[in-house]
Each structure stands twice: as structure tokens, then as C-alpha cells.
Design a protein around this nucleic acid. Structure first.
Lengths: 238, 238
DNA sequence: CGCTAATTGTGTATAGTATATACAATTAGC
DNA sequence: GCTAATTGTATATACTATACACAATTAGCG
């Protein structure tokens, strides 16, 4: 029976261990995988491909990650990076929250595979991601929300970020608003009457706005909504 | 050279065709796949598995779908079903929008694989999904939003639905709030100090609320935010 | 009727995937 | 130097999607 060597995240400690020194670190592998995913999409990230990228055999990767999911988890945490340090309570709570959301959105923007990776079923949150989460909770608490409301407002913000990321990736991808509109019209053919409101919106260029503007609009909506909760007024019952 | 037979969606027309009658319909296959995904997750949906489920060979499925992605697209559109018909302008716009969102959320709730399926990269929207989209645009237009705002508000709503779906699947899955809190604490170990706001919220039971309540809260926030836009007041500039 | 062309489901084959297992080489502590 | 741990590697297995060729079936046309 072969003993399973424990996979250690080769971090700070640098504990003296027997056997050959590892030639790589999990971090290096994750970064190589990120490069591949950035350039060719998440589907191009296979164990063989990444192993080849870092010049080892496929199975060597399993000395650093117990399985592929663990590699992708580290890709996520590495691409996300540490949470930004945002001033708390400085000039109101809206500005820092906006900044948090924008920076969060930029992760999804810089790494088109990110949305797919975080949406792929069950996964663990890494230390960086927890830091982002903590940062959001802190800012929302500063805005006057209670613990449960912090969580729920966080879901709103992250939902908006992802929703927008999906649209900017899947909607007009490289296409101009007009091109996209034309493609949409063509794909629907003569079924136009079936979707009157949608078609009217498309014809009016509703899908043509820049991703940044779209993010901003929704963000303002959410913050206005939060403000209603904080200040107590708003149609919150009906 | 073998000619490629065109894959037709065996729908209304029932055009007379040469050759043996198909023993199945794309719809039957999609429904079998949905049953499997409901019971065992999306990962269990392989061509071989579904083929076995409907008693044909694996390759027979390719007479109905050009590839697996097409099958999953139909799973999505089938599981989503036709959009609900909601009263327009009846007793204000909030109630119908809430109803739309709740019903949309129930899709994600009834089919735990749904979120993962719609998040898996590029895909086409089916007729049902377009109907849902059209319905949302109609209600949002009724609320007084312009075309671009309709689109952006739609992104907010769907983001909230998905955000909540992910949380209810990935957060306390089968675990009680206390169990989840304990697991979270354990997984973080002594790193608690690193995430003070998050830990405080966890300790206060922020993650214990029922998914329905969480959806409702965010929904109210969004609707309040929309109301701010419609009525023109709100901190929308800062 | 018979002939042709189209379309079905099937069988076989291929290239790709993740990952289990056994092993030789390396290194630390005794 | 011996032992035990740990590395990277080589090999093998069980999947995956899907390309291709074929026999059986059926419609339309003579």
C-alpha cells in the first residue's frame, strides 16, 4: 500500500521535509493555468495542458492539488487577488461600496473565464475571496445595515456584478450594438411578434450601452434601495 | 462522403420525410436528461447516460442534437417552461414584478443544476427563455422605465435570482444555520481575526435566513431603487 | 410494382479527459 | 549509512464527446 503524501500549500512555514524539493509551487501552477484560461478560455485548462505548460508530467500536478477542482479554486483566489482596502466611513458609504463593486467587476472583466469558474457547482472560498467578502460586509455594516441585511445586500451586489459580466461576455461580444441587434433580429426571424417588448427594447438600442454604464445604473439602484432600508422609508412593504 | 442529415426540431409541421420514423423526440430526450440532472446533478448528464435512459445508443442522440450543448440548451428552455402571464399594470407594477421574479427563482430552486447550466459559457436563448425576457421587459416598461433601463433592471433582477440560488445551494445545503456556522468557523480555524466583519455577521446568524426571505429583501431593495429612478429622486448622482 | 434517395439507429473507432497506482530517484534525520 | 518520507514519472483505467461507415427503413417517382 502506498502512503498518500499530504498536499501542503507550500506556504510561509517552509518546514524542512524529506525527499526532493518540489520544483514548483501551487501558486506558479495556478498562474500558468490563469494565463491559459485568459488566452484560450477555461475549457483549455486541462491537467495535461497545464502540466505541459509548466514542464512536468500530468501526474506531477497531483502533488500540488488533490484534484482539478482544487486547482481551479486556487486560480479563482489568485485571479481575484487580495481585497482592496477601502476607506470606511469616509465621505459616506456609497463611494466605497461603489468602488468595491467596480473593482470586483474588473476581476470578471479581466478574466472572462472567472464567471464560469465560480459558477461551476460547489466550491470553497479561498482567503482572498473571504477578504473581499469581509470587506463588503464591513462597508455595508458601516452603511448601517445589520448582519442579515449585510449578507443580503452582498448577494445583491455580487449578483449585479455577475449579471453584468455575463451580459458583456455573452451579449455584444466584440459586436457593435447594431451588429448585435441585427444578429438578434435574424436569429428570431419572423417570430418578432412573439416578443414585442423585447423587440421594442432591442430596436431602441437597449442592449447597446457600455458594460460600465450598465453596471453603474444597477449599482445606483441597489444603493438607492439600501438607502431606503437604512432610512426606513420606501415602498418596502408593498 | 456521407451527407449530413439536417437536424430538425420535430415540431409542429410534421413534414413528410423519407427514411424510418424517429423513435424519439428532442423533447423526450431533454426531459429524460432533466430527470437525471434533477436527481443526480448536471455532471451525471452524459450522452451515454441519457442515451441509456431513453433506450437508444449514444450516437442516436446526435440525430436529435448536433452536440451536447444543444441538448443542455433544450434542457434549460424546457425546465424554464413558458413565461407566466402576469397582469400588466394591475395594482401597480411592483406586485407583478415580484411575482415574475419569484417564479423565475422557483425554476432555480426546483432544478439545482439550472444555475450551473445557464452559467456554462456561451449559449443560445430558447423561445421560452425569450418569453421570460420579454415578460420582464414588458413589466419594467409598464413601471415607467425606458428601453435601456428595462435591460439594466432586468440584469438586476436576474442577478438577484441567481445570486440567491447560488447561496441556497452552496451555503447552508441541508445544514442548519448553526451547523453551517460551525463548519465555517472550523474551516477558518484561528484565522478569525482576519475577517472580523464577516465573522461578526456569521456569529449573528446572518447566513441563517431562509432563501425566500433573502430573495424578498433584495427584491424590495431593487424595486425601491427602481422607484427612485422612476420618480426621479434618490441619491442617484452620488 | 421496383428503383432511388433520404433518414433512421447502430457499431466501431478515435482523441481527449481525470486520476489511481507503482516505482525510481532524491533528501532529512537518526 | 540506514530508514523513511517525498518527489516526479510511467503506466493503466475508466470515462468523455463525437466522427464515420453501414444496414435497415421509408417516401416519392417511374
Amino acid at each position: 500500500m502506498t502512503k498518500k503524501a499530504k498536499i501542503v500549500p507550500a506556504e510561509a512555514g517552509a518546514v524542512k521535509r524529506r525527499g526532493p524539493k518540489p520544483t514548483l509551487t501551487a501558486d506558479q501552477i495556478a498562474r500558468a493555468a490563469i494565463r491559459v484560461a485568459d488566452a484560450e478560455g477555461l475549457a483549455a485548462v486541462s491537467m495535461q495542458r497545464i502540466a505541459h505548460e509548466v514542464q512536468v508530467t500530468t501526474m506531477a500536478l497531483y502533488r500540488y492539488f488533490s484534484n482539478k477542482a482544487a486547482l481551479i479554486d486556487l486560480m479563482i483566489d489568485t485571479a481575484g487577488g487580495p481585497a482592496p482596502t477601502l476607506a470606511v466611513g469616509f465621505k459616506g458609504w456609497r463611494a466605497p461600496l461603489k468602488e468595491w463593486t467596480r473593482r470586483c467587476a474588473s476581476i470578471y472583466h479581466n478574466h472572462p473565464w472567472f464567471l464560469q469558474a465560480v459558477s461551476a457547482g460547489r466550491r470553497l472560498m479561498g482567503p482572498n475571496e473571504l477578504e473581499w467578502l469581509d470587506g463588503a460586509f464591513r462597508l455595508l455594516g458601516d452603511a448601517g445595515l445589520g448582519p442579515q441585511e449585510q449578507h443580503q445586500a452582498f448577494l445583491l451586489l455580487i449578483g449585479q456584478v455577475r449579471s453584468n459580466a455575463e451580459f458583456s461576455a455573452g451579449g455584444p461580444r466584440g459586436l457593435s450594438a447594431r451588429q448585435w441587434r441585427t444578429a438578434m433580429r435574424k436569429s428570431l426571424g419572423k417570430q418578432r411578434d412573439r416578443y414585442p417588448a423585447l423587440m421594442a427594447a432591442i430596436d431602441a438600442g437597449a442592449f447597446g450601452r457600455s458594460p460600465e454604464d450598465a453596471l453603474e445604473f444597477g449599482l445606483n439602484c441597489i444603493l438607492d434601495g439600501i438607502e431606503c432600508v437604512v432610512s426606513g422609508h420606501g415602498g418596502h412593504g408593498g
